[in-house]
């Protein structure tokens, strides 16, 4: 070690070492070549009804043009007291980078569980929604690359859907599509759930044209709507397909439905 000490007292006059060490690496800072993110495709969808919420997602997991798995759920029950989540009251869907989605789900789940053990009651959707936003924002500078949607029933028993961007911006909505086919599904929902661009025939010309009056959809209607939305997405997006997983949240509990989608 004395050889490299740069200290003449320790090893005599230095020969070929220049006296002052250079501080910065000669080639400048090194580039990190590792990209910690990837997109695993897939799509999710949530619709709030009068007394129910339906959360849905396809079950395909892709990387590039490869299908990694035909059954990889994106929709999860959250905050149950047991491993099988049979007494859960909330549902989270995540889409984007699957590993981050999974990590986010597990964090929120353990937080909801802790809340439940401490307070003796399940977390409300409203509280959980705010907490999820905080979790996401805490990683503002190395975000969870996941589009989350949280669903449940609010304090009045009405269907509630909260949608998020990856850094925690959120709002309560009537319906929301996320993921690869969000841009395909969302306009369809605008039209079919919120009756956008639907008018009462013959009610007038131009501004006088009257909008069709909004009404809450029934559970059957929404289930069909969801299936139709995904059938459409599967047809036009290569990253969507294989299976459709639906969680129907009602006051009676959460019902899970799995339907086939095209596998091509």
């Amino acid at each position: 070690m004395a050889m490299f000490s740069q200290n003449p007292l320790m090893n005599g006059p230095n020969y070929s070492f220049s006296d002052s060490p250079r501080v910065a690496a000669p080639e400048g800072t090194r580039q990190h070549r590792f990209d910690p993110y990837t997109d695993n495709g897939g799509s999710t969808l949530a619709i709030a009804g009068a007394d129910f919420t339906i959360m849905a997602g396809d079950t395909r997991l892709t990387s590039g043009y490869s299908i990694n798995s035909r059954f990889h759920p994106k929709v999860f029950k959250i905050g149950g007291t047991t491993a099988d989540q049979k007494d859960a009251t909330l549902v989270l869907s995540v889409v984007g980078f699957a590993a981050d989605g999974e990590a986010l789900k597990e964090r929120l789940d353990s937080i909801c569980k802790m809340y439940r053990y401490r307070h003796g009651k399940p977390m409300s959707v409203k509280a959980c929604a705010q907490r999820l936003s905080t979790i996401l924002y805490q990683k503002r500078f190395f975000p969870y690359y996941a589009y989350a949607i949280l669903g449940g029933l609010d304090e009045e028993g009405k269907g509630a859907v909260y949608s998020y961007d990856p850094v925690g911006s959120y709002e309560r909505e009537q319906c929301r599509a996320g993921g690869a086919a969000a841009s395909l599904i969302m306009p369809f929902l605008d039209n079919q759930v919120n009756f956008k661009n639907q008018h009462i025939p013959g009610s007038g010309e131009g501004h006088a044209l009257q909008e069709r009056e909004r009404r809450p959809l029934t559970r059957q209607e929404v289930e069909i709507l969801v299936k139709d939305a995904f059938d459409g997405a599967v047809e036009r997006h290569i990253e969507v397909g294989d299976g459709l997983q639906m969680m129907v949240i009602t006051a009676a509990g959460i019902e899970e439905i799995v339907l086939p989608l095209k596998k091509d």
Partner: peptide, 27 residues
Amino acid sequence: HRPQAWGRPRDDVYGAYDPSYFHNSGP
């Protein structure tokens, strides 16, 4: 004749040794 110099490239031929090699800088 100094042992420190033995076996090392000559400064006048190869230039001074670059000690930054030993210093781990950057990320």
